[in-house]
Design a protein around this nucleic acid. Sequence first.
DNA 1: TTGTACGCGTTATCAT
DNA 2: ATGATAACGCGTACAA
Lengths: 336, 336
Amino acid sequence: MAAKQKSRPTYAEIAKLAGVSEATVSRVLNGDTKVDTDRIAAVNLAVEKLGYKKHRAAAALASGRTGLIAVVIDDDLSVFQDPFWGAITNGISRVLMEHEMQTLLLVAPLEKLDSPVAQYLQRGEVDGAIFLQLHKDSLIKLLAKQNLPLVVNGTPHTSNPFSYVDSDNAGGAFAAVRHLVEKGRKTIAMITGDLDNTAAEQRLDGYLAACQELGLPKVKGLVAEGDWSREAGIQHAQNLMQKHPDLDAIFCSNDVMALGAIAAILEAGKSVPEDIAVIGFDDSYLAQNSHPGLTSVRQDIVGLGMEAANMILALVHGDEVHSEILPCELVIRETA
Amino acid sequence: MAAKQKSRPTYAEIAKLAGVSEATVSRVLNGDTKVDTDRIAAVNLAVEKLGYKKHRAAAALASGRTGLIAVVIDDDLSVFQDPFWGAITNGISRVLMEHEMQTLLLVAPLEKLDSPVAQYLQRGEVDGAIFLQLHKDSLIKLLAKQNLPLVVNGTPHTSNPFSYVDSDNAGGAFAAVRHLVEKGRKTIAMITGDLDNTAAEQRLDGYLAACQELGLPKVKGLVAEGDWSREAGIQHAQNLMQKHPDLDAIFCSNDVMALGAIAAILEAGKSVPEDIAVIGFDDSYLAQNSHPGLTSVRQDIVGLGMEAANMILALVHGDEVHSEILPCELVIRETA
DNA sequence: TTGTACGCGTTATCAT
DNA sequence: ATGATAACGCGTACAA
């Protein structure tokens, strides 16, 4: 054994110093109201004096609660690059720490129901789990059955009663199109994300709703399904320009495709935004550092994380929660 | 089966099923060699049959080891956007999971020695810690004194014997300058990062070494100290172009400043790379999605994480480790 | 090599 | 409201 730790104070010492029983110490430290005021003070004083900190393993063993919340990321390539995870995890972690809970990071493929992560979650080693970018609902259905508190980032496919947080994707898309219309654009195309994805779907819905409500003429072939990649942005922008010579705006479901589209437009000898305006989605690092500056729909990613954390805390506490939709904000730069 | 709380199997049940004592079960499950082969088999069979998984809290309480490694991120704004931490954390997590260890994420400001994170780490609630992007060495000095296994990402300022992982910043910078020279560039400037930062320092060293070894004429004022920001890239590029009309290349200490420099160059009516070549550092998302494509020095970020994890595992195990420097690779695109 | 027995620090139940 | 005291599940001296 690596002998090292000078042994920490325990309830026994606090109890002795405060002149109460260990049970009372426990009550005070766990916020039990039915304790005499003087004794509460005495215990707190002793805690202070001894520099006592609760031993989490012992508490976990006795109570069955670990003080750990899992943040689960389905391990695919996007994780390596997308700053989204950093921001949302930051928001989660911040809130959890305020509540003396810790963030356990689980990054692994989730395809199978018997994957290491799936097993781990079923083992009761965390008090709850927050899923980021869930590809399939099967795992969370299983976990929900086992009464593990769950929060999902992004609208789930199923209408099952999962609590989730999400951005107002439709609203953000609507705002983008409205801005384009206000700028006098008439022929506005959209390059969507992978439409298996609910966010992509919602952004398309927002675009379609805006087109209709704002009285844009219905033109066929203005919507192209992309896959979030730069290449998709390039390809679809080229196609759209060919088929619609009067095209004067493209709304893209993320910034990467928007930058691809801009590259294609410039390559074709047209200018942005003079000839064709472009709006992206996410207001990512990319948008902020692009030249010309990319107009984009900002999500409050840290806010999503904080909401998710608050929800999981409520669920762990046994409270009811309702899903949260956070508003988006259009950040106007030079491309639209 | 309508039992609602299917309580998990414990040593008692395994012991009974395998016909051995609980102590023997413990020995088998912890890899003690001095156990009869037949009994090992019997225990393993029972474990399999019962679907037993160790209760980590109980093990932690009894052994003093938690099975948790903290990944500590000094909470500043960069965390929100920089994809670096996602990649490195991914590498860490992957390796730890293979060894049945979990990744505990600690994101908070570390300025003070008595910050919540600092206290947490001193409380023995993790078996070790990996520090990402450490600004000051004071905290790790304190923790090292308390024998907490530590690994730092990035070269520490102090020459204290901290184990660390880092990219070969100097080597990467050297390769960038060599590439520029090979392309016929004569007047190569550098915009550094904040030189308090060891990575920025090392990249500058690599640049200076290359200038000397490759026989570039010594010109004053070709090095500008930036602060990693886009604005720094813009400003310094403007200054450099003014002061050095024959400037034909700029090497930047990160991609953000490189993109800022490119924007400034284009704004000044010059072309990239025809008039002035630009190389960044990190080969980030930004470089990969920029237009024109940014030539940049790639770090093996996931590799850094994996190395860090392997090192901390060795340290926890009581082994000696030596710091690791991973090579960088120049990714050539259009700007140089 | 194996088993006994106790300890780890906290929580929760049960009397009082 | 308070205090004994029994779990919680595992690790490990010590004995055999």
